[in-house]
Design a protein around this nucleic acid. Structure first.
Lengths: 248, 248
DNA sequence: ACAAGACTTTGACGCAGATCAAGATTTGGA
DNA sequence: TCCAAATCTTGATCTGCGTCAAAGTCTTGT
């Protein structure tokens, strides 16, 4: 269930990513109007849980701004982040009734949501929506498998470099920067969240970030503001040669 | 490309899993006939590579019998298995032209294949196929994320127990056994393949298998024949409480 | 049936990353 | 503005798993 702290925002959002990425681009006008009818916005504050694992899912949607994470937890408290949701990423499982993971806003977050039942109904009537969703799910699957290599076989230093290169690349594409230039961004994750993503402890994350800084692979201003002087070098450190990770 | 050692087998296969799982179950007759036209079988020997990462994919299909694996390799030779394909699992990426991973037969393998272009064309005409494929892809994504927890946060012993419980569960469902009974099966993987799946070395796998045997969690006859006297106990060892892993 | 190769087990030892601990820096609320 | 809580850094030590090595056991072909 949505947290009571969430609240609707303006119902108009011309840059709503689902409009471009998932649904509207190829829709006929009447479907587009129907979509507008079932669309609404939700806002969450940093730290709020969007959905708890096991909760009934009543919407699907996508991230408009901010960052959310998908997390799994074992009974003894060990946690593993299994997905990082950046603007334009899709959330939800057409055809599934309950959430499989905790979804947590790590920064202030705006989501564009569609009520699930009418969305699914529309999916049946409009085949290209199902196809677009299949494509997006295949991308996520590739990303998850890419991450399995990171978790299973990379060293701590390579893991940090992999994560930084993914965030840098995504950030560059959102802000229309050229990868290859000096990239600069704010880390949207605490050291602990990074550790949960990478299967490490926060102390190891801190040490390896310091080491990469000392070696000139990254520059830091404060704790969170990162600049990558040489993306090629970072990718080498990540063990990805040049082409880099697929993570969406 | 398919390896030259592969060869067609009988074109009839009444228990072809795709018939039940992905496509035919809800097809109208004419689609079913069309499917028959583009269907063919391929047989591979243990150890053969079905497709190399980067190769042009000319078919989609599913495993009829035997086991295949999806593997990623780094330049320095480190490898990580990112998927385990058991009978009825689907292989291939509608909408993608080249393979993202190596697909290797670890036992003798029979696959039921469909030529990709006509299959995709049919997908467009027959919406429920696209929907079925979306469901299957979502299952795979859940499995991959479940595995991220295994790789990132579990100990070597828990990893082995997790893998054994997945294989045992799948084997039980294929052979219509009741989970909860004494389960018995042949391990379809070498110690090295298990290590590649679990992000461990083969020596560690061997030691932990021995330890689980010594502790009575599993019984071994020869190197490969395993029996699980108490599935609940195994799941505890895996750190999954009771309900267990989703891995498909 | 036997030899050669593939697979597996076990031991000894080292190291990357975890754990435990203490401070330092940043953030936010009254 | 100042205090308390959250976040981050760094150090010392421990340990699970990797590495290296050797020997045992299956499998296969001739």
């Amino acid at each position: 269930m949505l947290n009571e702290k969430s609240l609707s925002v303006s119902p108009d959002c011309s840059e709503c990513p689902i409009r471009h990425r998932a649904v509207c681009a190829r829709c006929e006008t009447d479907e587009l109007e129907r979509l507008e009818e079932i669309k609404y916005y939700r806002k969450f504050e940093a730290g709020q849980t969007v959905i708890w694992s096991g909760d009934r899912m009543e919407f699907v949607g996508s991230v408009v701004s901010g960052i959310a994470t998908l997390t799994q937890t074992m009974e003894d408290g060990r946690t593993q982040m299994v997905g990082l949701l950046l603007p334009s990423d899709f959330v939800g499982r057409p055809g599934r009734s309950s959430a499989a993971y905790d979804v947590v806003a790590t920064t202030d977050l705006v989501m564009c949501c569609f009520r699930k039942a009418p969305f699914e109904e529309m999916m049946v009537r409009t085949p290209h929506i199902a196809q677009r969703l299949l494509e997006m799910t295949l991308d996520e699957l590739d990303a998850a498998r890419e991450w399995m290599l990171v978790l299973g076989r990379k060293t701590a230093r390579e893991k940090i470099a992999s994560l930084l290169s993914i965030i840098a690349r995504r950030d560059a594409s959102i802000n229309q920067r050229d990868v290859g230039d000096r990239l600069t961004f704010d880390l949207p994750l605490t050291r602990e969240a990074m550790a949960d993503y990478l299967g490490l402890t926060l102390e190891t994350v801190s040490r390896q970030v310091s080491a990469l800084r000392k070696d000139g692979v990254i520059e830091l201003e404060g704790k969170r503001h990162v600049t990558i002087p040489d993306m090629g070098r970072l990718l080498e450190e990540a063990g990805d040669d040049a082409d880099g990770g697929v993570f969406a």
